[in-house]
Amino acid sequence: MTGYHRISAQALGRILVVVMFFVVAGLADWSPLLAAPQSSSESTGPVIVGRILYRGPVPAPTQLAVNRDTDVCGVTISTASLSVDAGTHGLRNAVVHVDLAAGEVSARIVFQSPAVVRNKDCRFQPHVAAAQMGDEVQIFNDDPVMHNTNIIVENSTALNVAMVAGGNPIKKRLKKLGLHLVKCNVHKFMQAYRVVFDDPYFDQTTETGQFSISGVSPGTHRISVWHEILGVVEKEVQVPARGTVVVDLEYK
């Protein structure tokens, strides 16, 4: 403890200014920027990475006829609910979750960036997303036509809001767990999914089927994967105290 020197008042003042700057910056909702370093600092524990695979037949995208607002929506809407990377067989838009026993779940570490539902070109974007309970869902209508965003959880309305063209965006907290079916009753071909968990141990697969989940306590855990067409697959995984564990799951 020798190289220790006093901090001058001037230096203290400078530090204060810097700290103030960060506080102000933090208040200004830079959360996506801030989230990155925070989550990396938190990921000193184990990381589960892997890939969700599907080698089965992939049907051509369905062309759904548009029954109204064809000037905005087009005449047909192509839906590719099953999106598989040709090279790697990686499955896109699957939601991966580590099911921890109650008690193992740590407190909320960081809010995800807001869950967004964007009505754009008569589609919900993104098509699939995962979120944590209490996250804010933000709903926008970028189209010049009226939509409604009707979110249904287990036969109940979680939220059903009109999205008048040029109207205000909607901001609501997610209050229900589980699979959220997102529909527009004006345009029956519009459909999307949100999966809401009460912990942050989830990820959504990329175009090549990859996912990464950190912050999980060591031990034996079950990984469950949901996909809108293929359903659910599960696998037990041994998570070490630190380091990376690689888990691939395949829909047969």
Partner: peptide, 16 residues
């Protein structure tokens, strides 16, 4: 408020 359980949406927020 809309009629929850049906397609009738709530207009309160969008037209606030």
């Amino acid at each position: 408020t809309g009629l929850d359980g049906t397609p009738m949406p709530s207009y309160a927020d969008t037209i606030g």
